[in-house]
Simulated assay, not measured.
Amino acid sequence: MTRIPVVAVVGMPDCGKTTLLEKLLPELKGRGLKVGTIKHHVHEFTMDTPGKDTWRHKQAGADAVVLASPTGIGLVRDTDRDLGVDELVTRYLNDADLVLAEGYKHTRLPKIEVYRAELHPSPLPGRDATWLAMVSADPPANLGLPSFAPDQIKELADFLEDHLRQAAKQATPTGRSYIHLEVDGQPVPLNRFAASLLRRGIKGMIASLRGCERPRKISLNITEGHNPDDHSGNHAD
Rank of each mutant, 00 (worst) to 15 (best):
P5Q: 02
R56K: 13
R200V: 00
S219N: 13
R3H: 13
G74N: 07
R200M: 04
G61A: 05
A62I: 07
D53L: 05
E113Q: 09
G11H: 02
L98A: 08
G201M: 10
F193V: 13
R116Q: 14
P146L: 11
T71D: 15
R56L: 13
Y104F: 15
V65Q: 07
N234Y: 12
I206A: 05
I202P: 00
V42T: 14
D237P: 14
T174D: 15
M12S: 12
A168M: 04
L24K: 01
T18I: 03
P121N: 09
A236F: 13
S196D: 15
N94F: 15
E102Y: 03
T130P: 00
V99S: 12
D95Q: 15
D48R: 04
R91C: 05
G11F: 02
R200A: 03
T223N: 12
Y178D: 15
S147I: 07
D151W: 10
H40N: 05
D97N: 13
T71W: 09
V9Y: 00
V183G: 02
F45V: 13
E44S: 12
A117R: 14
R3M: 08
I73Y: 13
A64M: 15
K23S: 15
V9C: 01
P173Q: 09
A171N: 04
I38Q: 00
V183C: 08
G30R: 10
D14V: 06
G211V: 02
V9M: 04
G175E: 01
V65L: 10
R192V: 13
E213G: 09
V6K: 00
G211T: 02
L181M: 07
G11K: 01
P123V: 06
H231T: 12
A167R: 10
H235R: 14
E155N: 10
L198T: 01
T79M: 10
D97A: 11
K217Y: 08
R165A: 14
V42S: 09
D158H: 02
H43N: 14
K23V: 06
V76P: 00
I112W: 03
L164E: 02
A194S: 14
N234R: 15
V114Y: 03
L75K: 05
R108T: 13
A149N: 02
A96G: 08
R56V: 11
L119R: 11
R127W: 07
Q152M: 03
Q166D: 12
H41Q: 06
I153H: 03
W131M: 15
E155P: 00
G233F: 07
P5S: 02
T172D: 12
A149D: 05
L145R: 08
T174F: 09
K169Q: 15
V99Q: 08
R116A: 12
A167Q: 09
A133W: 05
L100H: 03
G103N: 05
P140F: 02
G144Y: 11
M47L: 09
G225Q: 07
A207H: 01
S208C: 04
R91F: 04
I4V: 13
T223F: 09
I4L: 11
R127L: 14
R192S: 14
